[in-house]
Design a protein around this nucleic acid. Sequence first.
DNA 1: TCCATTGTACGAAGACCTTCGTAGTTTGAC
DNA 2: GTCAAACTACGAAGGTCTTCGTACAATGGA
Lengths: 115, 115
Amino acid sequence: MTSTSARPLEHPQREEIRLEAVLHALSDPMRLRVVRYLSVLDDHDEAPCSAIELAVSKSTTTHHFRVLREAGVISQIYRGTAKMNKLRRDDLDALFPRLLDTILDADAAQRRRLA
Amino acid sequence: MTSTSARPLEHPQREEIRLEAVLHALSDPMRLRVVRYLSVLDDHDEAPCSAIELAVSKSTTTHHFRVLREAGVISQIYRGTAKMNKLRRDDLDALFPRLLDTILDADAAQRRRLA
DNA sequence: TCCATTGTACGAAGACCTTCGTAGTTTGAC
DNA sequence: GTCAAACTACGAAGGTCTTCGTACAATGGA
């Protein structure tokens, strides 16, 4: 059976999330790509780290996911050998209304423009 | 007479402005503070670097203003001994609709919350 | 002309960031 | 029990960021 492990993963509480940390987390192209990927999943759906192919080593991937988690942008949970990720949309929207969508829109606009 | 000097200052063209650079520029509390300050000026009004007191040395101040300029967030122009700054609102709004205001709103919300 | 004001250039220190490889842990399947 | 898959921990290299002090340049006013 695939179950959630007891291995602990530190997440900031909603009220501990800081705008500066969120902006810094999203200012890296690789991390923005992860967020873009997660943003198109159904709400409450989640993806393992391995689902998003980043052209870097596994340890670098781990690093970037951790930055996103510690900034409060994503939540992570172990399921079996996988570590599932999803956007903390509710928390971000509650703290910073429209911020996530506006940044994703800006990213989409830029990608369209530079295509 | 107070005139605009010929001293050159490099600014990215509108189409050279990158979302990642903007987010990175705004992810620093000191730089976000500068942008907050400039955002409440009347449109097309401008402020010298010295108008915003940051608790750091002059050279550090110069550095942060330069990061904002090179990211395309502000424009700078010499007037006499002063260097005047203003937000590149039109350019940012054209490229990334609502981004600047949404980030400023998020900043205001966070400051209210943590007050 | 001389000076105060405003900001720059440069070099350096120390912190932090991104990346990697290697070795290891945890889990579920066989 | 053994194995493969997924991910981590650690340490290190190389780069960038933030900060400073000192010395300097440009400007406008007395």
